[in-house]
Design a protein around this nucleic acid. Structure first.
Length: 1021
RNA sequence: GCCCGGGUGGUGGAAUGGUAGACACUCAGGACUUAAAAUCCUGUGUCCAGCAAUGGACGUGCGGGUUCAAGUCCCGCCCCGGGUACCA
């Protein structure tokens, strides 16, 4: 029998039959579940529904590690629990199978990403299957499957055919917009558009340079098809526009803001630069307010909501226009503190601001252009790293203060971002720290810090308190922020120099990617304009290409496809961009409801029944990406009448990360040096002996880390010196022309595979055969003659060699044990290091339960006797606690409760059906295989999956007597058993009468006696 | 800087204002065994006194407060983890 090797040796050595044979049990039940379709979702019915969903994985080549299933196990437990509770449960799984890694791999190997993806999915599935999840696999979706992305494309088309009506506050079909245009032009159209949208298309519409976007019905009717398209494009919820995008040269694609971390790409860490490109965008800004408001209606972790609020970045303020002296132009600023307008002493524009070239005076032109050019060349990261460094230049131009008429110098400065607000700041150094620092830095060039706050000293810093009272502010004197804010806006609007405005930090989402492995757009071009494919054109699928790289002209990979390779070709050319990774994941939860529908993404009957996801389980890292975009698309589908709800995920729980414990070695760094200090090393560098041939030398932790300065320490170490001397001599002999000696120059940490290390002790033999470069390695051991590795707790990753896969643990302990153990580790939300130390305890629990139901010959033994009150109490305590904990999503404490229950039943030697049967149901969400096995042994033909959840009976917990802890001044001193029927008075009398009481009273009379029935007695002395 | 989490034995953690440390791991001792493993039993927060059963003191990051009673509530700090930022 092959399994013998991995089973506890005892079982075979003693010749006993195996007791808890998890291998046989788990394999058998997996087969039966699949064969009988145990987890096939029920039809739409009168049963209440429950939708529990995991964030679907990207099937990476590395497979699952123990961190992935944490959330899957937790959600599976809830899915199973809800089935026991009589709910119709939808619990699907699928794959987010478009993505960069498969494509990068394709670029390197030429292998089609579909092939790699297929292989990876097979591996994922194999791993998932071993863990006993109750997924309905008949509903699996893959975003890269044309049958799936057909509907992603359809939703794109729907969004293209929509505009945002601000009056109705919802998306509407473009037809209603066209009808308005035909009737009355755009005079009464209140739509979500980019500010100044007309500037971009002014030249192509022949309305002249002063046109500001208004047109009449007559204008509209006289326009050509192309002109109308140009206009409509400005209104669509997804549109093609020249926008400043984050271009990542290394990946050859643009990235969305949420795909960038610290100024570099989230995947790969490549630099990102700002670039203007013609791109598809999604008008998510139209939904900013609703995305913000919707957060109040969903039960999500507060920190995720907060991240989304910050990302949306709503701020209330005013737009104010400052005329430019001597020009028919004005600078528009957005400010959240219009109340401080009398403190404006200069203005700062973004270097990219369009007015800058126009208003810069000839003598300042060179300085301004140099500055703007330097700023434009900088990457995001460079700009960020210079946060503390204030820079800027004067344009020579002046603006006119709209209230005082004073002339205000106009500067440009990097700290003003072109993409936020209007790209211009009215600088109030007295009230804003950044402005204050700018003014102080350029004080010598005439910038001042006029004080506008009574009783405030603005010489050391800005006064940012909103309680501060204004002075030197004309009609605002004596007011503080709140009152002044309202008053000044009223005045600004009255004088028609600006208006109240709510600004959002969030930008529209770029929707094009210059990559191959993504959804192709259902779009073709004619006369340079994009058009949607018609229904009868059929679905466009990914064409074959010769290479997965951009063309020589820098076009996306799809431009490589020969015309015949496209299954649909229309117009001059097809769209060569593909959709971003978040396209397919923004609506997948809807497809699970009706995964095989050929007529629609999902039928209304199905979406009306299943509605929102009741419990969404996943990582917090998608806070500003997936979780925001899915909400956005849900709202569009809702507005357009396709679904009845406008939030996708009613409740969400984030599972914490499981961290890995990595080990590393301390490698001696060796350099060559001259014997004597007479000559400089640089002159003789070429003659130094090469140190590259010295085999690696590793130093045990205690020696390498005894001091903070290991180098000094190492130089004194006799063994290290002996080693280096030996090699110095060898090398000198080998290279007669060279000179010098080898010296230690510190240590370097080298990650080592954790499978080569046991409790930080390195298995030297296996390490040396791990890689060829270590075959000759030498080791400096500690006093116990072993090599101790360093360790660190960090994210599991391939490169750290600290990945723990679930496979080996399932092999060793079984899936039921692993499931319980992962829950037993602690609250799911918390991140924690992976440690298998305790897994034995959980495994022992399952074996103990097995022994409770089986005799020493491993025969199933349950009797039909009536349980005692004590046994019923044990059972019902567990029923109560397990139920309450699952309702509160406290997965970890359920495991302890079940342990206590089994421990106590074992003590009572209770193997009665009326106790064990409910217990098996309690266990089944956690250890479904074992529960099925026992359930069957108990004589049931049907699966335990749908067995009703045990009903808690409070009567079973009732006691005649309670062991009261008696405390004096809050300190518990002794216990007395008292009848639970006693009144509070009777209890206090009993306590006072107790022999021990006198001792703690020390002759004093108690001031007060507090009796909390069935809890505690506290005597106040 | 700002916004979230979190701080409890040697370790993971438990505790709806009411017996702090459940349940496990680890470790130690014992039983069974030729032996080992497995299993079972006992002990295991720290300190003090005692041969002992036991008794006492301290104890949930620190300092205050509310309360008969605080790990839990309030105020002020410290430390750790995560997120985020020239956002006007």
């Amino acid at each position: 029998m092959r399994v013998a090797a991995i089973l506890p040796a005892c079982i075979f050595a003693t010749g006993e039959t195996m007791e808890y044979d998890f291998k046989r049990i788990e394999q058998a039940w997996r087969g039966r579940w699949a064969g009988q379709g145990t987890y096939t979702t029920g039809e739409i019915s009168d049963k209440p529904k429950y939708y529990v969903l995991d964030m679907f994985p990207y099937p990476s080549g590395a497979g699952l590690h123990v961190g992935h299933p944490l959330g899957y196990i937790a959600s599976d437990i809830i899915a199973r629990y809800m089935r026991h509770r009589g709910y119709n449960v939808l619990h699907p799984m699928g794959y987010d199978s478009f993505g960069l890694p498969a494509e990068q791999y394709a670029i390197q190997t030429g292998q089609h990403p579909a092939v790699t993806t297929e292989k990876n999915i097979a591996r994922y599935r194999e791993q998932l299957d071993k863990l006993g999840f109750s997924y309905d696999w008949s509903r699996e979706v893959r975003t890269s499957d044309p049958a799936y992305y057909r509907w992603t494309q359809w939703i794109f088309s729907l969004i293209y055919r929509s505009w945002y009506n601000l009056e109705a506050d919802r998306a509407e079909p473009v037809e209603t917009l066209v009808a308005k245009f035909a009737e009355n032009g755009n005079y009464n159209v209140h739509a979500a558009c980019e500010d100044g949208w007309w500037k971009e298309i002014r030249d192509q519409l022949f309305f002249g340079p002063d046109w500001e976007g208004d047109f009449s019905a007559t204008d509209w009717l006289s326009m050509t098809k192309k002109q109308r398209e140009l206009i409509l494009m400005q209104y669509r919820l997804t549109y093609l526009a020249d926008s400043v995008v984050n271009w990542c040269p290394a990946l050859g694609t643009v990235l969305a803001n949420d795909e960038i971390k610290d100024g570099v790409s989230e995947r790969g860490g490549h630099p990102v630069v700002q670039k203007k490109m013609r791109q598809w965008s999604m008008r998510i800004t139209a939904y900013a307010q609703r995305l913000l408001d919707g957060l109040d209606s969903i039960d999500w972790p507060e920190n995720i909501k907060e991240v989304q609020r910050n990302w949306i970045g709503r701020s209330e303020g005013a737009l104010v226009r400052f005329p430019v002296a001597g020009y028919a132009a004005h600078i528009e600023v957005f400010t959240t503190r219009p109340d401080t307008i009398f403190g404006v002493s200069f203005m700062t524009l973004a270097p990219e601001h369009p007015l800058v070239p126009r208003i810069t005076t000839p003598e300042r032109r060179e300085a301004v252009e140099t500055y703007a050019k330097a700023a434009g060349l900088k990457t995001e990261r460079d700009r960020q790293s210079e946060v503390k460094h204030v820079t800027g230049v004067f344009t020579g131009a002046y603006a006119v203060h709209p209230f005082t008429g004073e002339k205000i110098p106009v500067w440009i400065g990097e700290y003003v971002l072109a993409g936020y607000g209007t790209g211009a700041v009215m600088a109030v150094p007295a009230g804003d720290q950044r402005d204050w620092e700018f003014a102080r830095k350029f004080a010598s060039e005439g910038l001042t810090i006029p004080n506008i706050f009574a009783h405030a000293d603005t010489s050391a810093g800005a006064e940012t308190s909103k309680e501060a009272v204004l002075c030197n502010s004309d009609f605002l004197n004596g007011l503080s922020y709140r009152a002044a804010f309202e008053k000044v806006i009223a005045e600004i609007e009255q004088r028609d120099i600006g208006m109240r405005k709510v600004n959002y930090r969030m930008r529209d989402a770029v929707f094009s990617r210059q990559r191959y492995w993504g959804e192709p757009f259902p779009v073709y071009y004619e006369d340079g304009m994009p058009y949607l494919l018609d229904e009868q054109d059929g679905q466009v699928t990914l064409p074959e290409v010769d290479k997965y790289l951009p063309t020589d002209e820098g076009e996306p990979p799809l431009a490589r496809a020969r015309r015949e390779a496209w299954n649909v070709w229309k117009g001059e050319r097809m769209e060569y961009n593909t959709m971003p990774g978040w396209a397919g994941s923004s609506w997948y939860f809807l497809r699970y409801m009706d995964p095989h529908n050929q007529q629609a993404f999902a039928s209304p009957e199905k979406t009306d029944y299943w509605k929102q996801v009741d419990l969404y389980m996943g990582g917090a890292e998608h806070a500003t990406g997936h979780l925001l975009y899915a909400r956005f698309w849900t709202k569009i589908l809702h507005d357009r009448g396709y679904i009845a709800f406008d939030e996708p995920f009613k409740k969400m729980i984030n599972q914490g990360m499981i961290l890995g414990r990595s080990n590393y070695l301390y490698k001696l760094r060796i350099s060559s040096e001259l014997w004597s200090a007479g000559n400089s090393a640089a002159e003789n560098n070429l003659d130094l002996i090469p140190q590259g041939e010295v085999p690696p030398f590793f130093i045990s932790k205690e020696i390498a880390e005894t001091e903070n300065q290991p180098f000094n320490n190492l130089a004194d170490n006799a063994e290290i010196n002996a080693y280096l001397n030996e090699w110095t001599l060898k090398l000198l002999a080998k290279y007669p022309g060279k000179k010098g000696k080898l010296v230690p120059s510190g240590v370097q940490r080298l990650p080592v595979d954790i499978s080569l290390v046991d409790s930080d002790v390195l298995d030297i033999e296996r390490f040396m055969s791990w890689r060829e470069e270590f075959a000759e390695a030498n080791f400096l051991l500690n006093e116990h003659k072993v090599y101790i590795c360093g360790s660190e707790i960090e994210k599991m990753s391939k490169s750290k060699y600290n990945v723990q896969t679930p496979d080996e643990l399932v092999e060793k302990f079984g899936a039921d044990t692993l499931r319980m153990y992962e829950m037993f580790l602690g609250p799911v939300e918390q991140s924690k290091p992976w440690d298998t130390k305790g897994i034995n305890g959980v495994h022992n629990f399952l074996r103990k339960l097995w022994r409770l139901c089986h005799d020493t010959d491993n025969r199933f033994v349950v009797n039909e006797e009536t349980p005692t009150a004590a046994e019923l109490k044990i059972l019902h305590t567990a029923i109560k606690k397990v139920t309450e904990d699952l309702e509160r999503y406290n997965w970890n404490t359920v495991v302890s409760t079940l342990m206590i229950c089994v421990n106590e039943l074992t003590e009572n030697k209770c193997n009665k059906r009326r106790v064990l049967e409910p217990l098996v149901v309690l266990l089944s969400p956690y250890a479904p295989h074992l529960a099925e096995e026992l359930w069957q042994s108990l004589g049931h033909m049907a699966s335990v999956t749908n067995a009703p959840w045990p009903e808690f009976d409070p009567a079973c917990l009732e006691e005649d007597s309670f062991d009261y802890p008696v405390s004096f001044n809050g300190k518990t001193r002794f216990f007395i058993p008292l009848g639970t029927a006693l009144s509070q008075d009777e209890v206090s009398r009993a306590v006072l009468a107790h022999e021990q009481t006198a001792r703690y009273l020390e002759g004093k009379t108690p001031k007060k006696i507090i009796v909390v029935p069935r809890r505690i007695v506290n005597v106040v002395v």
